[in-house]
Amino acid sequence: MRVQAFHLGHTYLPEHPVLHDISLDLSPGSLNYLIGPSGSGKSTLMKILFGDEPIQTGQALVGGWSLAHLTDKTRPYYRREVGFVYQDLRLLPAWTAEENVCLPLEAIGRSRRAQRSRAHELLHQVGLGHHLRTPVAQLSGGERQRVAIARALVHNPRFLLADEPTANLDPALSDGVIELLNEQRQRGVTLLISTHDHQLIKLFRSQVYEMRRGIISRHFTSQLGHREGESLSQGAGESSHV
């Protein structure tokens, strides 16, 4: 699914704009990263692209959807084509991992059997096959994060937004998650992942958008490399301002 943003701007509080003139063009099946310091507006941009925040200025097109024209009626249908791993995960702590992962399928009325088999498949993929019936409240931070990732993938979205999906994971698990997400590209899924872990972007060839104070300050193609202590600027290749 192609994702385009044109001159997006956003303000939460008057006089304090969070995004200025953001433009993006993500090709179908591409892997894209959003990096940048805390507070630079990464989550805000992702929320706009998920329809959580309204479009205030500019326009965004995702597949056939014009986000400026989403209404309360159409938004749920848009979200059925998109997956989102929230930074705060948004899981239901009293529900089991399986119940949490099944929810997007429950909302579209899939049969219980279909829900279960799909949820089990994904929970096994993220290494939580032994925690299907465990309430999320009893899982570790990293395990919860993986439940959230499984939930974002369960309905086969064509555009996946992941807001710091590896924040609570150790390096090995982080790489595993990125590999899992990267596999989705075979189905033409467009990925947009925000991260503070600059080692991650070297795992696969990807487009990297660096944000600073509400603008995209740099856009470059990442180069492959191994996880080590080196800094991001050395791993960065061509660089251009957008």
Binding site: K73, R79, R90, L103, A107
Partner: peptide, 16 residues
């Protein structure tokens, strides 16, 4: 409210 929030973020309609 959390449930409502989560439901609406996974594509549940208002009716649902």
């Amino acid at each position: 409210r959390r449930e409502v929030e989560v439901l609406s973020s996974v594509g549940a309609t208002k009716t649902f």
